[in-house]
Amino acid sequence: MKFGIVVNEGPYQHQASDSAYLFAKAAIAAGHEVWRVFFYHDGVNNASRLTEPPQDDRNIVNRWSKLADEHKVDLVVCVAAALRRGIKDENLAAGFRISGLGQLVEAGIQCDRLVTFGD
């Protein structure tokens, strides 16, 4: 099945981003396709390349980048939400791209399932 995932919260502040990642990983492990992850609201902070967690903590941003690289997951950051929060092409982590809200609607239309994680 083709999955779309929505992430509405930033990394480290709320569990939503971790839950979304673990869900995506489990979906892929079960043979499904994660077609797109859409980051909205504070969720856009998942895309910041400038993130530096302590060494004994998980690296949420790199984890997403790796997922995109290994499983061709399209990581899309909402442009309006990103600009409001200082996320731009110059500090965007690998595998992410900035685009419009239409990408979220498109995921809703194209995917068999859309699952939202937030606060």
Binding site: F23, A26, A27, A30, R113, L114, T116
Partner: peptide
């Protein structure tokens, strides 16, 4: 988590 995925598959909408 795999059970979570199964629930999203067996239900058309979440």
């Amino acid at each position: 988590y795999s059970g979570f995925v199964e629930l999203t598959v067996s239900n058309k909408t979440s």
